[in-house]
C-alpha cells in the first residue's frame, strides 16, 4: 500500500514541521517549517484527488504567503528576537487545552468515522473547478475581488505609506 506509506510519511512531516512552527524560537525557522508543512499538505491534496488545489496550495501558500511572511520577518529584522517563555499559567493552559482539544477531536472523529468511499473517481481538475466557479459561484468569486481589494488598500494604509506623503 504505497498510498498509505505516502500518507503516513507526509502526515508525519506535516505534523513535525507544524510542531516546529509552534515550538521553535526563531521565527525564520518557523516560517520555513511552515512552508515544509504546507508542502506536505499539498501532497495530501494530491492523495485526495485534488491536484489543482495541491498546485494552488504550493503557489499561493508556499509561494506567495510564506514569502511575504519571510519578507516581513527579514524586513523587520525579527530573527534575532527570541522570546523568553513567560506567563506559565497561560503556557500551561495553552498546551493542555489544545492537547485536550486535539485528543477529543481525534477520539470523536474516529468514533464517527465513515469508512466507505463512493465508487468511481472524483474529478476535481482545474477545468471542472473553473467551470463551477464561474457558474454557480460567480457572485462569491466576484466578491473575493472586493475582499482582496480591501485587503490591499488596508495593507497600504496600515503599513506606512503616509497619507500626507501621498499627495
Amino acid at each position: 500500500m504505497i498510498e498509505y506509506a505516502v500518507f503516513f510519511f507526509f502526515a508525519a512531516v506535516a505534523v513535525i514541521f507544524a510542531l516546529m512552527v509552534v515550538l521553535h524560537r526563531n521565527p525564520v525557522v518557523g516560517a520555513l517549517a511552515l512552508v515544509a508543512s504546507f508542502f506536505a499538505l499539498a501532497v495530501m491534496y494530491v492523495l485526495l484527488e485534488a491536484p489543482f488545489l495541491a498546485a494552488l496550495q504550493v503557489i499561493v501558500y508556499a509561494g506567495a504567503i510564506m514569502v511575504l511572511f519571510l519578507f516581513v520577518i527579514m524586513l523587520l529584522n525579527l530573527q534575532k528576537q527570541s522570546e523568553e517563555p513567560t506567563r506559565p499559567l497561560q503556557q500551561f493552559l495553552g498546551y493542555a487545552g489544545s492537547a485536550a482539544f486535539g485528543i477529543g477531536l481525534v477520539y470523536y472523529l474516529s468514533k464517527y468515522a465513515v469508512m466507505e468511499l463512493p465508487a468511481g473517481p472524483f474529478i476535481a481538475d482545474a477545468r471542472t473547478v473553473g467551470i463551477r466557479l464561474f457558474e454557480a459561484y460567480i457572485f462569491p468569486f466576484e466578491m473575493v475581488s472586493i475582499l482582496l481589494l480591501a485587503a490591499i488598500v488596508g495593507a497600504l494604509l496600515l503599513s506606512g505609506v503616509r497619507m500626507e506623503e501621498r499627495t
Binding site: 502526515a11 509552534v22 493552559l93 495553552g94 498546551y95 489544545s98 486535539g102 481525534v106 472523529l109 468511499l117
Partner: peptide
C-alpha cells in the same frame, strides 16, 4: 485512504495551530 485519517491529521494540525496561538 479512508477519509477519517485525513480528518484526524487535520484535527491534529488544528490543535497544534491553536497551541501555537496560545503559547
Amino acid at each position: 485512504i479512508p477519509t477519517h485519517w485525513f480528518l484526524i491529521l487535520s484535527a491534529i494540525l488544528f490543535a497544534i495551530g491553536v497551541c501555537g496561538v496560545l503559547t
